[in-house]
Design a protein around this nucleic acid. Sequence first.
DNA 1: CTAGGGTTAG
Length: 817
Amino acid sequence: MLRLLIGGRFLPNHKSNYFPNILSSGRFLHTQTSSSDDSWTNNRDLNIDLLFHSCTKTHLAKRLHALLIVLGKIQSLFISTRLVNLYANLGNISLSQQTFDQIPQKDVYTWNSMISAYVHNGAHTDAITCLYKMLTFEVKPDFYTFPPVIKACRDINNGKMIHAWISKTGLEWDVFVAASLVHMYCRFGIFDAAYGIFTNMPFRDMGCWNAIISGFCQNGKGEKALQILDEMKFEGIKLDSVTVSTVLPICAQMDDMSQGRLIHLYVIKHGLESDLFVGNAFINFYAKFGELIISQKFFDSLVTRDLVSWNSIISAYEQNGNPDRALWFFREMQKDGFAPDLLTLVSVASSIAQSRDTRGSKCVHGFILRRSWFVKDVIIGNAVVDMYAKLGNVENARELFERISIKDVVSWNTMITGYGQNGLASDAIEVFQNMVEKNFVTPNQGTWASIIPAYAHIGALKEGQKCHSNVLKTGLILDLYIGTCLIDFYGKCGKVKDAMLLFDEVPKTNSVPWNAVISCLGIHGHGETCLKLFENMIESGTHPDAITFISLLSACSHSGLIEQGEQCFNAMEKDYGVKPGLKHYGCYVDMLGRAGELEKAYDFIKSMPLTPDASVWGALLGACRIYGNTDLGKVVSEKLLEVDEGNVGYYVLLSNIYANAGKWEGVNRVRLMANEKGLKKTPGWSSVEIDKRMEVFYTGNYSHSKCEEIYKELEDLMMKIKVIGYVPDYSFVLQDVEEDEKERILMSHSERLAIAYGIISTPPKTVIRIFKNLRVCGDCHNATKFISKVTEREIVVRDSNRFHNFKDGVCSCGDYW
DNA sequence: CTAGGGTTAG
């Protein structure tokens, strides 16, 4: 008995501070008989502990192994078992297993060591197999055997079987065994069984309390875990470092800052501050609330740091928008001799994306490739796909995405979002359809949040509605994020009523759904309703943000509500503390410009406190186009090309202005300038949804399978609408050609091809929905009004600027756009 | 020489 205690079996090694229970826990009923009694007698000539502890790398362990063979010590069961453990601790399970296999006569220590070696290295099946093998050698498992075995159980049947077996051996209430069982039942979600064992335990040590708390925490029962924590406090048991590091992530997850702060005070009082796990947990806890100074304090006060400490501080800065500092810590950790792991690189990849470092992205990719980490875990592949997509490099993102052999739902979501955020909605849809067809993974909240905006972008109403019904089925409809996506979607597809209905349903806990609905009504020209909603928003106590005012100002602009727009602009900083940014100035200029107040807009720009950027000058140039002001247009375009000479859109706009005024030499000059810079006009395209499929038309495209029918229909339509008063407006033709050629050019505009195709492909009187990637041409706008009248159809056209609803010869925009 | 409960994630 004395030797057991002095030998370190219970006293020095034991981490528990609940000692009295152990003495009475029944543990001493089991006497250990060891066949390897050679440990003290035969190996005194070597300082075994020192030798083993000095092996911190596999190659050192191998040298020690060789030395022990030479010295003839390998026959000692004690020595060879230690080698099994040593290799396992170094993470080299195959060497551990080899050493184990070469031992002829194994005792219970040896078997236990091998089983726990497997478990520690994640080889759960091997651990169970090893247990059965142990039985065939007629070695009886003891209470060292079971905890790792329980940990290795991957399914509930296996677990229950092992549990029954343990009951028969009478080891069920050993604190280690029982704690393992409690944790296992939690893992399988059988919380009643776990709690049952816990309450029936005759003796509990800290480990048991921690087992049930962590069991609840890790399996989505945070609230219940905190209840047990209270129970524990009530019984006067002190939290230890394990409890603290278990509970903190739950506090963060439940957004319970005050609970965490209380624990912080407790930790200071009980001197747990410098504990590695506790410190790491606090770094993460405070980082989640953006309290980086406190996170940094914890990091600084750590006496020893491990990989998790470094990863945590790097992720803290990365998650809070300070990628440079995150990358600085990444270099520091390496200087400090720590080799980055997979999780380090996840944060680093995101930091690189945030700091827009294209060269760095290649380094990160190479770094991971060299270590073959992509096969180790999807998470790192997903992180790098995300990094490339955020840097706008969708090709590399897609290539890597295809190389991920086992994709999870996040992989798909990342790729869909990546395409969507780079404006490639049709590619996003292709990936989504692939995901659904292959049926590999079930879409989740993130999937809907990435695909619905893509459908909104191209105006695919039917497909989006299908998503909506799927969202209803999965019960995610009350999710604020998805709700907002759907509001935006219906708005962009022209379904204002549906958008409003949804808006009534979603929880309005922050400004986001308000912004969505205001912007939706704005592009439909319901400026007055927007202002009303803004009032409601303020009344409901929701604080408006920068986006709110962008939506509001652009709504005023689209509806010609100059006075109200001015009021908004003046009130935003004064009354709501939102400082106007360049986008707000852009909206304001746009508003004045559309109303024809070109000089006022120009003066306004000159008086701006910020340096106007391309979007501000671009708004004014657009107004010059509407009002045919070539003189101001020339001045503005010069300013514009100073700030952004690479954007082809402005050249097009300027050449439009010249063409409109019939100044063809100006048109040619601008065209030449653009050509010299190597700029190509963005090809215009329009799409129409037929039978849930999107058909895309490019301007002057003659390769469509129904091409002849489309042009025939267009010619018929032209005749019909001319009869009721349509006159082609050739000012929208940018080429200096003959009149009938001009008519042909207008007729082959992509939006008109899409409309004609819609008419011949759908039953009479059904609504036709068109999406155009650029602004709709003025002549097409006029023609569409007449077409809606002669065909008795509602035609919905969304362009890059706003929304047009043509019905019975008029457009919802009132020709003001 | 062997055992339970702990911190980092796209």
